[in-house]
Design a protein around this nucleic acid. Structure first.
Length: 522
RNA sequence: GGCCCCAUCGUCUAGAGGCCUAGGACAGCGGAUUUUCAGUCCGCGAACUGGGGUUCGAAUCCCCAUGGGGUCACCA
């Protein structure tokens, strides 16, 4: 039990990185880093024949974005490579040959249709399905004959149905199974490619994986895998079956297949709303690869890696009874398997947003500017290379916006600070209430417009004083005009402090916009 | 259905027999600040699935029930 810690995450190249899978990867990464061990990325592509760059790109990108580096795997290589299952055929073949030679596996010549019929028959009789070992009755000569004829066959691992198998799991404790009802799993297809349950064991042995940390949904697979370890004469790794990530507010596994349903999930709503309003502005749209179940969504929409990492780490793991906000290095230092809970953990968008707010608040202004600029460039509100002037303006805007920017793409919702005066859009409802139905407001606005035109200083504090003096001289209250003023210069009923808005926009734009509104209501 | 796993506030969790009239965080609600929104501050409501045991004592241990979930491929 004292071998070096080596953990792995073995994604299938699907073209996207699932948030639940990312959490599993994170736990593997954390354990390796906590122990000063090695974290490996292995690509489980035994069943894949698509474009590898396209399929793997988003996955590696997610790891890079979150800063989860891998010590061995694609692009970085390593002493145990290759790290693509599709390139490790020799290993699987050798293992199969060994099992075959020792009588621990057999060639099954039953055609797929027959196997299927067996299964359906069992089902019809409400009997538990067990594969029928017809091929086991074949003599050596018959087998040789069939092979000579080129008859297709799969290779099955021969389960000892009198045995039982047990593991000690770091989160589940002791778990055991009786093998009596266990079908002999196919370990190699008729085309010679290995199946997951087999390949993963062969790989984990060869890669000297010390801890297999994976989601609970793999617990059932573990029985046959453990049997294969034994048959191959290998020591079992340590297992830790962590709870799976559930859909918000449910105990059902978060699944890419249910993305459509999640739209109606009240707790998921916020994220989908964010996706629906912001993605299109960025020239993107919700898709199978880009939605709140996928890591790329959070990157595109402008979440901070710290927030995602913090939220993911807290899904099924805790440090103590009060610590919530934790930077990665703290988590690495304190992450242990014994503090992983057993019950499934529902992904909580609200909590994620809260982590995001916390970590954004920690970032220096300069960095927040840097993170917002790309979005503004994407929508064309500032130049491809931001001028110092533009940068300064965005910086002042961010100061005024303060905590209102939750995710960095939120900045594209503040078009009023960038569009031409005559392109400003107005909140109709507020306009009706605050301007059209309020003669006082219009009158005051007209009067204050002249004050703004002639006042010397156009900085927030002075404008504040100016307006207060003005309303006092008119025998009015600030509330009588301020909403109309806000509508006039920003078109919106809410936003940063009024005087910050005025200063930010500057005299010309303010006057121009007030005139435009006044003309509009007359 | 077989096998396996799980069960504390709405959610994420703390809790490893007395520290629990069950703690924290998020969300919710109320109040304060304020020109709006966001924020901030203060406060409130909110949970041990049920039943049997074991024990002086159980959220914590055991059993049963109930409920929820996962998995049963020539997918990973």
């Amino acid at each position: 039990m004292s071998r070096p810690v080596r953990t792995r995450f073995a994604p299938s190249p699907t073209g996207y990185m699932h948030i639940g899978g990312m959490r599993t990867a994170l736990f593997n990464w954390l354990w390796a880093r906590h122990c000063g061990g090695t974290f490996i990325l292995r690509i489980d592509d035994t069943d894949q024949q698509r474009n590898m760059d396209e399929a793997l790109g988003p996955i590696l990108r997610a790891f890079r974005w979150l800063g989860l580096n891998w010590d061995e795997g694609p692009e970085v290589g390593g002493d145990y490579g290759p790290y693509y299952q599709s390139q490790r055929g020799d290993l699987y073949q050798a293992a199969v040959d060994k099992l075959l030679a020792e009588g621990k596996a057999f060639k099954d010549f039953d055609p797929p249709e027959l196997v299927k019929a067996d299964r359906e028959a069992a089902e019809a009789e409400k009997r538990n399905y067990l594969n029928v070992r017809r091929s086991l009755d074949l003599s050596a000569a018959e087998v040789a004959d069939l092979e000579a004829q080129g008859a297709p066959y799969v290779i099955r691992f021969l389960v000892d149905r009198t045995a039982s198998i047990a593991i000690t799991d770091h989160v589940r404790g002791d778990v055991q199974w009786e093998c009596a009802q266990m079908p002999d799993p196919v370990i190699m297809r008729s085309n010679g490619s290995p199946l997951y349950n087999f390949a993963t064991v062969v790989d984990d042995i060869q890669l000297e994986i010390s801890h297999v940390i994976r989601a609970e949904e793999h617990l059932a697979n573990t029985a046959v895998q453990a049997l294969i370890y034994q048959a191959l004469g290998a020591e079992l790794p340590e297992f830790a079956h962590i709870p799976f990530v559930a859909a918000p507010g449910t105990t059902k596994k978060l699944s890419k297949r249910d993305v459509g349903k999640y739209r109606n999930n009240p707790q998921f709503r916020k994220l989908f709303d964010l996706a629906d309003t912001t993605l299109p502005r960025l020239g993107l749209e919700v898709s199978d690869a880009l939605n709140p179940v996928m890591v790329s969504f959070y990157e595109e929409i402008g979440f901070l890696p710290e927030a995602i990492l913090n939220a993911l780490a807290r899904l099924g793991w805790s440090y103590d009874d009060k610590t919530e906000n934790m930077p990665l290095d703290f988590i690495v230092e304190n992450f242990t398997l014994d503090r992983v809970v057993k019950a499934s953990a529902g992904f909580d968008p609200d909590k994620l947003l809260a982590f995001q707010e916390h970590w954004v608040a920690q970032r220096p202004l300069e960095e927040r500017v840097d993170r917002c600029l790309p979005y503004l460039q994407r929508v064309g509100w500032i130049g491809e290379t931001a001028s110092n002037e533009e940068r300064g303006y965005v910086q002042r805007l961010l100061v005024a916006l303060a905590d209102r920017i939750k995710v960095f793409s939120d900045i594209v919702g503040y078009d009023e600070y960038f569009v031409a005066d005559d392109a400003l859009t107005y909140d109709e409802k507020a306009l009706e209430k605050r301007v059209r139905k309020s003669e006082v407001a219009v009158t005051l606005l007209r009067g204050f417009r002249d004050q703004l035109a002639t006042t010397e200083s156009f900085v927030a504090a002075d404008l504040d004083a100016l307006l207060h003096q003005f309303v006092e001289s008119q025998g009015a209250k600030i509330g009588d005009i301020i909403h109309a003023l806000r509508l006039a210069v920003t078109g919106k009923p809410a936003g940063p402090g009024m005087f910050d808005c005025l200063e930010l926009l500057g005299r010309d734009r303010c006057l121009n916009r007030i005139d435009l509104l006044l003309a509009k209501v007359n």
